[in-house]
Amino acid sequence: MTSKDKAEQPDWLEAELADTIDEDYELELSEPALSEEIRRIYQKAHPPSIPRIDYFRALLTLQAELIKLQDWVAYHKEKVVVIFEGRDSAGKGGVIKRITQRLNPRVARVVALPAPSDREKTQWYFQRYVPHLPAGGEIVLFDRSWYNRSGVERVMGFATEDQVEQFFSDVPAFERMLVGSGIRLVKYWFSITDEEQQMRFLVRIHDPLKQWKLSPMDLQSRVRWEAYTKAKEETFARTNIPEAPWYIVEGNDKKRARLNCIDHLLHQIPYEDVPHEEVALPQRVFNPSYERKVLPPELYVPPKY
């Protein structure tokens, strides 16, 4: 970015950069506490990405547009569903976190369902997802979705071939029904290479702050890499419909993947500025006879830091 470009940045962006750089930096602390050998391999596999300040500047600009999108959705009672799929450690959670970071949780919410219960296993397959679909004025981000059936459930043997075939038969009609009902449906697949997933798994194994992200199912996904690839390819072939196409996000570079995905999402929805009531801070009411009471010290959190 040239000095001229920087000079043309709006004042709010520079102020926000100065005010929130620490908060965003916390989210970006991806350099794990690794052994020197793994650190060397990791750094060799990841040449320098976007400079941090340029990344934050672009991210904040996109997040400002997401707020405009949110306001438009709420104002016009639009309904938006965004699906995030991809291999384990592909970066789905990272982009979802940046999308929702500055949005109103009453408008934009994340759905990440656990494994189905015994009762849910006897229901129509899509039934447990339906209650989470948006009402007017809502954006729902699915961190994995009904495509579990053609992915992990199929590869891990949790679904029979007949069930998978039924899924492929049903999902185009199901998604056309959603779109026909007024839902704007966008589907993303985050793609990483075999080598990149292996490196990210090693990072998680050696970083105590990230070990919780590894489950036995994740580890099995390494063993069954090729099976997941075949499942992904058939999913694309049979569910990439004009009403709800798939979009592939190249995810080896996390920062670029986040920026590219958010930018693309903003271009899928024809949002525009909406009317806003002018906000004015009212004057505080002062009561001369009121005296603030001193609360007992045991009510306060100890100031350890």
Rank of each mutant, 00 (worst) to 15 (best):
A159T: 00
W12G: 01
V249S: 10
Y247M: 08
P116D: 08
L281P: 02
F84Y: 03
V164I: 08
Q211S: 13
Q268I: 07
K254I: 12
A173I: 00
P131W: 12
R258E: 01
W146H: 04
I67V: 13
E120W: 14
H132L: 11
I139E: 14
S145W: 05
E278K: 01
R284D: 09
R128K: 06
I183Q: 12
P51G: 10
A231N: 06
D143Q: 08
R109A: 09
S117T: 13
K79S: 03
R144E: 03
L178D: 02
E36V: 00
A237M: 13
G136A: 12
P245N: 04
M199W: 07
R184P: 03
G94R: 00
V155L: 09
P51E: 15
L27N: 05
L13P: 04
L66S: 08
A227I: 05
S169F: 10
V285C: 11
E161Q: 08
E16L: 13
Y25Q: 05
W212H: 13
Y247A: 09
S49G: 14
P296D: 14
L62S: 09
K4C: 08
I192S: 01
L299C: 09
V107A: 14
F56C: 14
Q123V: 07
A257I: 04
Q220F: 06
A7T: 04
E23Y: 01
E85A: 09
P131S: 13
D11Y: 06
P48R: 08
D253A: 12
L17F: 12
T100Q: 03
D218F: 11
Y305D: 15
D170E: 06
K255R: 03
I248F: 09
R106L: 09
R204S: 13
E278A: 07
A7I: 07
